[in-house]
Amino acid sequence: MVRFKNRWLLVEFIPIDVRPTNSTAVTSKTVWNALKESVIFNFGETGWGAVGGSLTVKYFSPMTGICIIRVARDHHRIAWGAVTLITSLDGFRYIPRTVHVAGTIKKAQLAAIQHDREVVARLRSKYKTSSPGDEYTAYLTSSRANIEAIQE
């Protein structure tokens, strides 16, 4: 028997518009809805039929804007294309950028943790803070725990 194969897309949503603080936060549900809309919008019912059964958003981090999307390997390019063609979430514009495409959940998790560290390093150099016990360290620990908790 051959196991069922997936692709794991690690996608970063780069915000363009500044969200007002009182607006509802983006969740993985929002991303999933936007993704579904984009697949149907660009690839029609056939496209949604090909990827809809397996498409799930496994993780979304509002702080760094990264999410992990699972899709069956056969038509993952449709899902990937639909991710690229997303222009906005909840009416706010974003640039989706695929950071990594992984064949197993493990590699997707590792790439996500790596990416989190890079983002935090960038923020730190921007605000010139490097104390070991600051909020970023706490965030890294918690996000790492969250990412590692993702089950297939």
Partner: peptide
């Protein structure tokens, strides 16, 4: 505009479509 920009490998994937 900025919103029209995409990462290189994302564009390559759209091209495969």
């Amino acid at each position: 505009t900025i919103a029209d920009l995409r990462a290189p490998l994302d564009v390559a994937n759209v091209a495969t479509l």
